[in-house]
């Protein structure tokens, strides 16, 4: 493997976000393609981070820095990827549903997915079904993620799915849901495409949705 690619991987693992953009540029100058930089430099770094996090050897703030380092490099290569017609992992629109102000779980999910190469559009918390619909229209994401921690707000996930159906764009996105009281059974019941109990498995199912 080229020297600069392994350096990029290491920088991502170490969370050196100040250096990764420059490294990405160097790699481009050396004549490497953006896809090669993504798949052989950035992703191996983040994959390693994912494995280490699951094993309990890396911690949330470290993973966050790694994801940030990855995104900093992505900012450089994303336009070129688009030019060469290679699609990056795609966009995820994510938010905490109407009436619910719990956002830490949602933030962690966004962060892990960002680390997996997705572009995250975070709508924030207390998001109305219509606002989700609008965001799906505007950003055409591959995935819509919804978070709810309250028994009283879990229903809003269902309402959002119905609203997407009514607008006729339900099938344009995969829908994943989560939050402490959410279960697989609930996900099936409301017609979501997937449920994850934590941020690491959330990024796993996101990857599965976008082969």
């Amino acid at each position: 493997m080229s020297d600069i690619l392994s350096k990029l991987s290491t920088a991502i693992i170490e969370g050196d976000f100040a250096s990764t953009p420059e490294m990405a540029e160097t790699a481009l100058e050396e004549g490497l393609g953006p896809d090669e930089i993504l798949n052989k430099g950035l992703m191996p770094g983040m994959d390693h981070v994912g494995v280490e996090f699951k094993a309990g050897n890396m911690f949330v703030p470290e993973v966050l820095r790694s994801a940030r380092s990855m995104q900093a490099a992505m900012d450089i290569i994303r336009p070129l990827l688009a030019e060469t017609g290679i699609e990056p992992a795609g966009k995820i629109v994510i938010g905490t549903v109407k009436g619910d102000l719990h956002d830490i779980g949602k933030n962690l999910v966004g962060m892990m997915c960002e680390g997996a190469g997705f572009e995250i559009i975070d709508l924030g918390k207390d998001i109305e079904p219509d606002a989700f619909v609008e965001a799906v229209k505007e950003h055409s994401p591959k995935i819509l993620g919804m978070s709810a921690l309250l028994t009283t707000t879990m229903r809003a996930m269902e309402q959002t799915i119905r609203a997407l159906e009514e607008t006729g764009i339900r099938d344009s996105v995969k829908i994943m849901i989560g939050g402490a009281p959410v279960t697989q059974a609930f996900s099936d019941q409301i017609g979501a495409d997937g449920y994850a109990a934590n941020a690491a498995s959330a990024s796993d199912i996101a990857k599965k949705f976008t082969p």
Partner: peptide
Amino acid sequence: FMDMAKGA
């Protein structure tokens, strides 16, 4: 407290 190993 947030456990940084589990994010829990």
